[in-house]
Design a protein around this nucleic acid. Structure first.
Length: 137
DNA sequence: GCCAACGTTGGC
DNA sequence: GCCAACGTTGGC
């Protein structure tokens, strides 16, 4: 059963353009236990929105989980994990945080409720609604 | 640049 | 075990 996610990156640190250029990229650096648990719950084939935090504040693309959780090589200590993500497709129309917040359907979205969570689940309903907003298919 | 929300640390 | 102090994230 496929699950859906949203992952955040500051484009100054790692951007969608870099993800596209590299194709497959280890998603490292998560140092929050709830976010780590979400990484561990990811299955091969799960899809995630790629969100630009801080600068941009919009969903810019979709990635696919191609390798499930393994030890994060950038962690000096602790049992932190990372997964590998492959770029799937850009959003035809990037979805701004402002647009998401102004739509009452997304009041319960983790991105809205837990603004500091860098790896968050997205319900199948929200996934479809956001894909439509972004001009997907 | 400010600040709210949240996590972590350490004194007691 | 509580809580104040501090650091970090990320929206505005």
């Amino acid at each position: 059963m496929k699950n859906y996610w949203l992952i955040k990156s500051e484009p100054d640190a790692f951007s969608w353009d870099q993800q596209v250029r590299n194709r497959v990229e280890p998603w490292t650096g998560v140092r929050n236990h709830l976010a780590k648990n979400h990484l561990k719950a990811m299955q091969r084939g799960d899809l995630a929105f790629f969100y630009h935090s801080n600068t941009g504040r919009e969903i810019v693309g979709i990635v696919e989980v191609v390798r499930t959780a393994y030890p994060d090589p950038t962690a000096r200590e602790g049992d932190w994990v990372c997964v590998d993500m492959r770029a799937r497709q850009p959003m035809p129309r990037p979805i701004t945080l402002a647009a998401i917040k102004s739509d009452p359907r997304f009041e319960t979205l983790a991105l809205v409720r837990l603004s500091r969570l860098s790896v968050a689940p997205v319900s199948p309903e929200h996934w479809v609604q956001l894909c439509e907003m972004g001009g997907m298919r």
